[in-house]
Amino acid sequence: MKNIKSNTLFRVKCLVALMIFTTMFTNCDPDETQEVAKLNNLVMQDEFDVDGVPNPSMWTYDIGDGTAEGIPGWGNNELQYYTARPENVNVENGVLVITAREESFEGASYTSARLTTQNLFERQYGRFEARIKLPWGKGLWPAFWLLGNDCDQNPWPQCGEIDIMEYLGDSPTIVFGSAHGPGYNAGDAITKEYELENDRFDTGFHVFGIEWSPNRINYYVDDVLYQSITPSVVEEEAVVDGGPENAGEWVFNRPFYIIMNIAVGGNLPGAPNAETVFPQRMLVDYVRVYN
């Protein structure tokens, strides 16, 4: 969390001022249309209007504790076993419900689900957006994120990761958006918090999105743009000393796929405690992609 906080560059008010300035300057900038995406042409959507199993032509699942993938605990010492059972993932009353449970299952103490669009919907650039109500409590770590579709050939972090929304259940007013690549990943990722001033993320739905164009990823919550990551930001922030040769390379010019999950425990959130209430649910009203 400290890392995340120290990377918080601007407060919202400051950002608004910056946006105004940016607008003023970019009005004179001939490249403006290539820098800022304004994407409203719907190319993919799941409104989760049909109860039951999520649409199999759009969603597949990561199953297990990561051991089969060679990363037990999914690389973060996470505690959950992912399943595709309706107890962990189901569409109910017009929303996708991802449920984290405390139960003994295949040697794990918690179960949850991780949906992906790998090989089903992969796309380069666009506006990726979801409307989500988040769970709460220490140890809950839900996310809505994108992963490059070439991680088999170019192992993470070279294949790139765009975290549209991450959240820790014991900080119910804060989400954060990040980008991971060579020289800027894990604890050194480019990341920024967004804090709600008079509301929480676990008591109602909020919209989380990015606008991703060739040389920019803009992060927003509801109608507030709070972070803009560009190749120059990445170049500046990447760790060069002891990093890879291509530290700071912009790796976001290829198709990515969508992931939604609730992790339980792990390095970032820490383990659930006695006050954590289970089951916990992440409700997704829709996922939409525009170009």
């Binding site: 709460w136 119910p172 008079n198 509301d199 929480r200 008591t203």
Partner: peptide, 8 residues
């Protein structure tokens, strides 16, 4: 105050 940040 009306905080809006109290939940559950």
């Amino acid at each position: 105050e009306n905080l809006g940040t109290i939940g559950q």
